[in-house]
Nucleic acid binder design. Sequence first.
DNA 1: TTGAAAGCGCTAACAT
DNA 2: ATGTTAGCGCTTTCAA
Lengths: 341, 341
Amino acid sequence: MVGIDEVARRAGVSTATVSRALSGRGHVAAATRERVEAAASELGYVVSASASSLATGRTRNIGVVVPFLNRWFYTSVIEGAQRRLMQYGYDLTLYNLSGVSNERGTVFEHFLLRQRVDAVIAVSLELSPDEVHSLHALGKPLVGVGGPIPGVPTLSIDDLAVSRLATEHLLSLGHTVIAHIGGDVDAEMSFHMPTNRRLGWEAALRDAGIDPRPDLYYPAVFTMESGYLAAKRMLGDPRLRPTAVVVASDEMAIGAILAARDMGLEVPRDISVVGIDDHELAPFFGLTTVAQFPEGQGEGAVELLMHELDQARGDDEATNVPLPFELVVRSSSARPRADRD
Amino acid sequence: MVGIDEVARRAGVSTATVSRALSGRGHVAAATRERVEAAASELGYVVSASASSLATGRTRNIGVVVPFLNRWFYTSVIEGAQRRLMQYGYDLTLYNLSGVSNERGTVFEHFLLRQRVDAVIAVSLELSPDEVHSLHALGKPLVGVGGPIPGVPTLSIDDLAVSRLATEHLLSLGHTVIAHIGGDVDAEMSFHMPTNRRLGWEAALRDAGIDPRPDLYYPAVFTMESGYLAAKRMLGDPRLRPTAVVVASDEMAIGAILAARDMGLEVPRDISVVGIDDHELAPFFGLTTVAQFPEGQGEGAVELLMHELDQARGDDEATNVPLPFELVVRSSSARPRADRD
DNA sequence: TTGAAAGCGCTAACAT
DNA sequence: ATGTTAGCGCTTTCAA
């Protein structure tokens, strides 16, 4: 392993100058810099990350914590974060809580805190005040993605506004009996995301002068199968005749579309379906949805972090950055049939 | 940040003893160890990863390189690897090649080689001899998952045997006109995985005394939509009347099932479908498939690596560890209708 | 602009 | 079983 002193010797300068020339910090004569760079590349020199970290106290490594991996949303966030981090010369260390049996305590104590990362991105994670505190105590910037964490700058869409938009889309098409398939309690995903999406549905209905009927709300978990089952319950109930349904995620919405097909119903003729996400499968199923952009969220989180790291523990404004979302109309939503009811 | 000497002082021992007590290396009296551990936890001490790395030359960090993230196979492998690494006290640094515009060279030169990882796991990646060489030159163990890399120990299923099994399942049910939807050239995924799966289909047919017809092979890429389109072509062609199809991945197979439905055909009555993977959606679609176990592959890769790291650059046996696979029969395959043809 | 040298916090000989 | 101490390879004052 060729070290800095070999480069120094070859370039005829001191190690300090090599360090300065290669890191870009401090002033180095252009000619000197070139000689150093030449020497470095001839020798195939790369700085030792650990030596550099030890000296500077910075690892150039960001920890990303996710509750699961096998979900489009998380991997998309990670992908965006990774791409942007690479541009900044940072590594991404992944912490997946789903595999951790003995509680996530391990992750926080033995990994994150081990001075292995300069900062952390928490994706859709409800961090306890203690966890937030210990990170802050260590001077580690922290940003959240996908849901607000008290006292922590967070990137997330306005879930209420998103499902309100989805609902209003259906209202504007002329639907009046609009159901909702959404997360049950705030289980699994933590956060109040499922609740907020339900509230958005209710709010849009009320604004349209329609009283949201509790029996038009179908709880489910965020999987295709669960959406399928919820839709079967919904479509099979002879008392309820929704002409449209707002579904809290695309995966569930796709399940709902498949349920309708299995029952011999046609989408959107017999039932309009609107999802939330713009999942990679949404175009294939012709799913109308409200797109969020998780890759962009990952990138944004990195930007925020880089900013904070620059500021040397600057103002922890704990702002909740609102994220863009966008209605994407495909073929799963249309005007209700005139001949119904 | 409390350091090792504070702990030493508090425990009334030398820093060397603290190091030994906490790392488990070297002999320490039980009583001493307890005192040290107490002192460490009272002070909230955790070793500095970079200092430790600098001193030992080991980072306790493994690089995992994947070509994409948004695919069930890769995330599953990562999940398995992550879980096992955590047990060993290692971190996982993720390198996702899909976002890298300026070639993966960057990843190798500026990241992997920067002495940031002790070893690397390459998932479904065809590494160039150069890349393999530079890793080896650095003394970094390397294991592959999902496809053989020359000169590198690799974990992968026997693709030929897997699709042979899928085909034999259909043959044993009485099918004789069996199509194949599979990867085109060895694009995208690199490796000869797609080709091998096609060869398995051909071999099984030949063994049954059936000549594999080239016009029963439908190239596609590994997405649901591509599988859907291939199936439409296949099922729409009036000249060909396959009663069954072996599909090279579950995602494509699901696309095929949906295509059949859209054409008013019934699975398995009109066409039997068998996939490969046991994707998380396979049960939902009732897909008969040959399961591989990517999480187990991730775990296995870690085991292999830990072994190599212990051996202090032991024998690079470059063994290709064959992995288990298993036929899972669900409702998408059945005997062909007696009244056909 | 450049160099000398003192750490950064830990580990591993080598002593005892 | 424990302590002493010389590094690990870089960065960064401080001087020149």
